[in-house]
């Protein structure tokens, strides 16, 4: 019985792993194929039986008919990380305030203000495209990294606020009260007492921000021309009338790499019990 259960369990895990890993395997092999390798098909073993070629990877690093992915990659990294750090910082402060103090703005109370933040993400992005474009133009920040960072902060901060308000609500108020009693001012209370308890929340919020920021195509596309290119836009420019599967696969792997690294780091953190018992 026990063996059967174990066998089934491992079978399920194996199936799931295959399901998750195959797209990567597919992309990896395709990135080393030439046009013939992609369309020809294999006689015996797929994914192995083909003539390897570096054409796909070369086209990512300034090869013939390709692009240079280094600059956009760097741009994406800068924009995503800066916007995430700013959003998390501002969002966490806003969330703590919303969770602990009572605010009233016209008819709106704390929960309405929180919802106002989140509601920014409910609108379809296209609604924001023109206002953002006009605002950045009047600031002279179109097609520039600071401009993109600014826009991304506006997009990511609601996520940070949303995640962190929930997290702070889960941290007992008794902890704040105890800290006041011990003579802390609200800022030290937040920094030394509450924030360490909300660390898992920061990780989750950070993860969301980085993923959303990194993957955004729409604003990267609408708010830049030629000077400043982010990775998703650069990859799209690889496309042509004959789809270059090999270059696209290589590009997909490059753009996914940072998220894979992030996933591993977060997984480490979670498995070390970072989340478990974070709140009493």
């Amino acid at each position: 019985m026990k063996t059967l259960y174990l066998a089934l369990k491992y079978l399920a895990i194996a199936l799931w792993s295959a399901f998750v890993v195959f797209p990567f395997l597919w992309a990896l092999t395709t990135s080393f194929k030439s046009a013939n390798g992609v369309t020809g098909g294999a006689t015996w073993i797929p994914w192995v039986q083909y003539e390897p070629s570096l054409q796909g990877w070369q086209s990512l690093f300034g090869g013939v008919g390709g692009i240079n992915v280094v600059k956009p990659f760097y741009n994406s990294l800068v924009v995503t990380l800066s916007a995430s750090v700013i959003s998390i910082t501002l969002g966490t402060l806003a969330a703590y305030a919303l969770s602990r103090f009572t605010f009233r703005f016209l008819w709106m109370r704390n929960s309405d203000i929180t919802f106002f933040f989140i509601s920014q993400r409910i609108m379809p992005p296209i609604v924001l495209a023109i206002p953002f474009f006009l605002m950045l133009r009047s600031l002279g920040l179109l097609d520039s990294l600071p401009g993109l960072i600014l826009v991304y902060v506006a997009l990511l901060m609601p996520i940070a606020v949303w995640v962190m308000v929930d997290f702070f609500n889960g941290v007992p108020r008794g902890l704040d009260e105890m800290a006041w009693m011990d003579g802390c001012n609200p800022i030290i209370t937040f920094w030394r007492v509450i924030l360490p308890n909300a660390l898992p929340g920061l990780v989750v919020a950070g993860m969301f921000c980085i993923i959303f920021g990194w993957n955004d195509f729409f604003f990267a596309f609408t708010l830049t021309f030629t000077e400043t290119q982010l990775l998703p836009v650069a990859i799209v420019s690889l496309n042509s009338s004959v789809t270059p599967w090999w270059s696209l696969s290589a590009a997909a792997l490059v753009s996914i790499a940072p998220l894979v690294v992030l996933a591993f780091v977060v997984e480490r953190f979670l498995s070390k019990g970072g989340l478990a018992g974070a709140v009493r």
């Binding site: 007992p172 008794g174 009693m181 003579g183 007492v193």
Partner: peptide, 20 residues
Amino acid sequence: KDTGARNIAQVFQVPVIYRS
């Protein structure tokens, strides 16, 4: 006056400790 300025110590039913 604020709690901090009163210099009071209070112990609650459930222990409150700084986890970090």
